[in-house]
Computed example of a mutant assay.
Amino acid sequence: MLAIGEFSRLTHLSVRTLRRYHDADLLVPATVDPDSGYRYYSVDQIPTAQVIHRLRELDVPLPEVRRIVSSSDPDTRAHLVAEHLHRLESELDRTRAAVASLRRLLAPEPAPVHVELRSVPATEVAAVEGDVAQDEVLGWYAGAMAELDAVVPDPAGAPGGVYDNALFEVGRGHVLVHVPTHEAPRSGRVRPVVLPPVELAVATHVGSHDDIEVTYGEVGTWVVGNALAVAGPIRETYLVGPRDTADPTRWRTEIGWPVFRVAGGRDG
């Protein structure tokens, strides 16, 4: 048997932490002296303590650590750990995206974004549409585009999306993703749609979508500065994207804000 101090040195868990884990029924000593209250651990508990140490380093919550170490099924333990690792990877992706946005926003002299006015005629497209929560857009988009790719093998141009204002304002809104085609089929969720003609303020976002909101802000600034007003859902066109290349530095996304001239405005 090992005294708590010896066990602490062997496992790199402090005595205070071991006491806390005992109180939480996470790592219970092999025996506790009824007279002195001293805690003693067996050498067989060292691997469990090391697993707990690593899980806590990964910020696994105590209740989840308890579920992992108390499970006798290796597959269950592996599944629980994999779930947490997936959450950590998602959080890391969000952190990287935030860092990229901050670096661009805090650059001493950020590269100006070129914005142009463009008149877009009515366009026939094959489309999939639905009401989607903002945090589900990426997954929904991937599924919708897979359906479009399956039934429109030779589109007449780059794919795009139309995003309702409510998606940004309240976190849920109507989304329509599409590919231009001369004969739009009806198959599954895919159906023909004619996008109405529109006047757009257009800018191209270069690179990963992690900081695309910065380009959105720059387009909005240009729109206000040129006495224009936004009228209708935002359009995006994916000139080059993840479906074309895994290299995000090569991605090109056109952002189009439907606009109209405010009385007394100047030309942009």
Rank of each mutant, 00 (worst) to 15 (best):
A97E: 08
V99P: 05
V99M: 12
A100I: 14
S101E: 11
L105G: 03
L106A: 15
A107M: 11
P108A: 04
P110D: 08
A111Q: 06
P112K: 04
V115S: 13
E116Y: 09
L117T: 04
R118K: 06
S119T: 15
V120P: 01
V120F: 06
P121A: 07
P121F: 01
A122Y: 08
T123D: 13
E124A: 12
V125I: 09
V125E: 01
A126H: 01
A127S: 06
A127K: 04
V128F: 04
V128K: 00
E129S: 15
G130H: 02
D131A: 12
Q134G: 12
Q134W: 07
D135L: 11
E136R: 03
E136T: 08
E136N: 10
A144F: 04
A144V: 09
M145I: 09
A146H: 12
E147T: 06
D149G: 15
A150K: 09
A150H: 07
A150Q: 07
V152R: 02
D154Q: 15
P155D: 00
P155L: 03
P155F: 07
A158H: 06
A158R: 10
G160S: 01
G160M: 06
G161I: 04
V162D: 12
Y163S: 11
D164G: 02
D164H: 07
D164L: 01
N165T: 13
N165V: 08
N165P: 01
E169K: 14
E169T: 11
V170D: 03
V170W: 00
G173T: 03
H174S: 05
V175H: 00
V175R: 02
L176Q: 12
V177I: 00
H178M: 09
P180N: 04
P180F: 00
T181P: 00
T181F: 02
E183W: 04
P185N: 05
R186N: 09
S187N: 11
G188Y: 10
P196R: 01
V198K: 00
V198S: 14
V202S: 03
V202N: 00
A203L: 07
T204D: 07
T204S: 14
H205I: 07
D211T: 13
I212M: 08
Y216L: 06
Y216M: 08
G217P: 08
E218S: 13
E218R: 14
W222Y: 12
V224S: 11
